[in-house]
Amino acid sequence: MAPEFVLGLALLIIGTVASAFPGRRDYLTRLIHLEIPAWGLLLVMLSYDEALALFTFGGVSALSTFIYVRVMQKREAA
């Protein structure tokens, strides 16, 4: 097995558990922890040699973070 695959799966498991059960039950803590499985999924896609998937996922990850921040700010203001 490729080392990228094993490291990506380890990052996915660590990040998912940390995002589901954070230390402080805060949306900011969950949002920062959600960045870890994104990089783990990027490493798993890298081990399968999918170039287009890497490009698309890299763009969508930052866009989804922006959308989450906007939605949570609007929900807090309301």
């Binding site: 990027l42 890497l54 890299g58 990850s61 930052a62 973070t65």
Partner: peptide, 20 residues
Amino acid sequence: VLAATALIAPLSTIFILMAM
């Protein structure tokens, strides 16, 4: 992919800093 990812990754951090 490395160049694109390295330029996109700070944007995600800056969005989180905006919320902070």
